[in-house]
Amino acid sequence: MIFQPTDKAKRILVADREFLARGLKPTLFGDAFHNSMRASWPAFFAGFAVYFLAMNLIFATLFQLGGDCIANARPGSFTDKFFFSVETLATVGYGDMHPADVYAHLIVTVEIFTGLSTLAVFTGLIFARFARPRARVIFADALALGPHDGRAMLMARLANARHSAVTEAEAELWFIHAEDTQEGRRYVRFHPLKLTQERNPIFALSWTLFHPIDAESPLQGLSSEDLAAMEARFLLVFNGHDEASGQRLIVRRAYMAADLRFGHVFSDIVTPAQQEGDPPEVDYRKIHLTEAAAP
């Protein structure tokens, strides 16, 4: 197949940042499975409904071209042929109307094959969508940069919104920025940020990640103005083994330079027990809250 690029711009989303892409060959049907998995449930069923309606309109038109080829259908009635097509495509077959000649039998044969194939495909897609693991991880809306344990730290926080634990949890934090080369060309650089603890044996409630701002950190000495000029972004990637589904979970969250709060730390979301014997309280409503660090 010859690749034929197009000048039409297409909006794409990469790491929560929008781009206009040109020169790509459209892949609406060539990548139908991927598009079906990415679509929301309302969009998925809306697309199925449009397909179902279009197929029945096509077959109803073919029956209409055959004249009065459907027994017990009103002469010339496109409506009767449309609903006969619906019954045939769904393999229902109420028996009120049936093919009356060879032409109608041929069209019915093709339609039944199409209906069985469609049922198999959409059943598989629905199962794949339900079986796909989805992590309910809450990411804090911002990053904090402030003191922790006597050192300057970049902090990110996430929480598990499900009651089941995630084992073998791992997190990666990346610093992404634009940089001009000596030749004057602008490139995007990716720097992994070393974390004090990048693995968590049991991720059940919340987890705060810490990156020390020291001589080895690419963030050393950078201000908010510097980060804005560098078009800086941060990418947090989380993955782990979900005990409930037995599958691997992968989820990510991107942050812009404006989402970094200098001189702040995250507010505590765990309240100790007020009385002996009572369990501590975890308030997920505070997951996004930060406060100015003590001078």
Results as ranks from 00 to 15, higher is better:
L235R: 05
S217M: 03
E231D: 15
F234C: 08
L236Q: 07
F238D: 02
E225T: 14
L235S: 04
R233D: 12
T208P: 00
A228H: 09
L219A: 00
G221V: 02
F234L: 05
A228G: 08
L219Y: 00
L209K: 07
G221Q: 08
D214P: 07
F210C: 07
F238M: 14
M230T: 00
D226N: 14
F238Q: 00
L236W: 11
Q220R: 11
L209C: 08
F238R: 04
Q220P: 07
S224A: 15
L236R: 08
A215C: 02
I213K: 10
L235N: 05
D226C: 03
L209W: 09
V237L: 14
A215L: 10
A215G: 09
F210V: 00
L222T: 05
A228M: 00
F234V: 00
F234Y: 09
S217H: 12
P218W: 01
V237Y: 01
A232R: 10
P212N: 06
A215E: 13
E225L: 12
L209I: 05
L227Y: 02
H211V: 02
F234I: 02
L236T: 05
D214L: 02
E225S: 14
L219T: 01
Q220A: 15
M230G: 06
A228I: 06
L227S: 11
P218S: 10
P218A: 06
A229N: 13
D226G: 00
D226H: 04
S223F: 06
P212G: 03
R233M: 13
T208K: 09
E225A: 15
P212F: 07
R233T: 13
D226W: 04
M230Y: 09
L222P: 08
L227H: 02
M230I: 00
L227W: 07
L209A: 03
D214Q: 08
I213H: 04
V237G: 05
G221H: 10
A215H: 10
L222E: 06
F210R: 00
E231A: 11
I213C: 05
E216R: 14
H211F: 09
L227E: 10
P218Q: 10
F238T: 09
A228K: 13
M230S: 04
